[in-house]
């Protein structure tokens, strides 16, 4: 009797121990990878940002000089505000362009196959490299570019518009085109999960499209908006290539500063900018996650 009960007791705990050890085994490669290549580098950046930088060398004597430089320099503060401004504009633009597209794909297209095909169409630009997608805007927006030629041909403008390329506008246009798909995807996914009967029920209860949109569709798609906004924000805040290629060095983002500083071996200063950027992105994600409880919604 005692024997059997011990045996059953052991049998009861064994599977549990096994699942525990299996769980640890499963997570180990990920933990090692993230520790070596994400956590350690970030801590290293934070550490290096307090090192002493001289023109040609860097040594680990702790100092706040790089930090002081960053926050007292007009150029760098301007870059900070430009980054925030471009981020907000691109976020709004991707939402403005992306939400209606997602609404069309997720709600108005009735065929599942067609809506998936349309999502794939959105991804087609990604079949070429990032740099080509960015550079492709030059022949579009340039002084002699496609848009200016068309505008003049149809007599809408008499002279080419110079502001199209190498300006903040061209950076916003380029970024919106590149990142809008990250907004469309999550929103279309959430919208396609809305039970059609729920929308029909709202119609049957006398609500027109406006009320159905604001009270039913929009709230139910909010998690998709938040996920899309996180994707776009993270990528835009860390951007440097689009502004480098399309702004003609007129738009300096924090990302561009990091590239320049690293290029001139100013590691400590580049680290300061990196830490500032990481903190900003962290704050943005935290704020966006406050909008909806993703754990509950997904």
């Amino acid at each position: 009797m005692t024997e059997t009960s011990t045996a059953s007791g052991a049998a009861g705990t064994l599977p549990r121990q096994k699942t525990d050890s299996t769980a640890w085994l499963l997570i180990t490669p990920g933990v090692i990878w993230m520790t070596l290549f994400l956590v350690a580098p970030i801590l290293m950046i934070l550490y290096v940002s307090f090192w002493t930088q001289t023109t040609f060398a860097i040594n680990p004597t702790p100092t706040l000089e790089s930090w002081r430089d960053f926050f007292t320099s007009q150029t760098y503060m301007n870059a900070l505000w430009t980054t925030v401004r471009i981020w907000l504009i691109v976020l709004a633009a991707t939402l403005l362009v992306g939400y209606p597209a997602a609404l069309f794909i997720g709600i108005f297209v009735r065929s599942r196959i067609l809506s998936i095909s349309l999502l794939i169409v959105c991804v087609i630009p990604f079949w070429t490299s990032f740099l080509i997608r960015v550079l492709a805007w030059r022949p579009m927006l340039g002084r002699e570019g496609a848009i200016n030629i068309l505008l003049q041909k149809f007599g809408i403008t008499s002279a080419p518009i110079d502001a199209l390329l190498f300006s903040e506008l061209s950076v916003v246009i380029g970024m919106t085109q590149i990142y809008v798909v990250f907004m469309v995807g999550p929103i279309a996914f959430m919208l396609s999960r809305i039970d059609r009967n729920v929308i029909e029920a709202a119609r049957d209860l006398g609500a027109g499209f406006g009320r159905i949109f604001t009270r039913i569709i929009l709230p139910l798609s909010l998690p998709g908006v938040v996920v899309g906004a996180i994707f776009v924000s993270v990528m835009v805040l860390g951007e440097f290539a689009t502004s480098a290629a399309l702004s003609g060095r007129q738009v300096n983002l924090l990302g561009n500063i990091i590239v320049t500083q690293v290029g001139s071996l100013k590691w400590a200063f580049a680290s300061v900018v990196g830490v500032v950027l990481t903190v900003i992105i962290g704050i943005v994600i935290a704020m966006l996650l406050r909008v909806v409880d993703l754990k509950r919604e997904l």
Partner: peptide
């Protein structure tokens, strides 16, 4: 399948048609 509004309370579900009718 009832098609209740999943993000609303019981009361809000019932008032929806009264408040939001065109």
């Amino acid at each position: 399948n009832f098609a209740l509004f999943p993000h609303m309370s019981v009361l809000k579900n019932v008032t929806y048609g009264l408040v939001n009718a065109d």
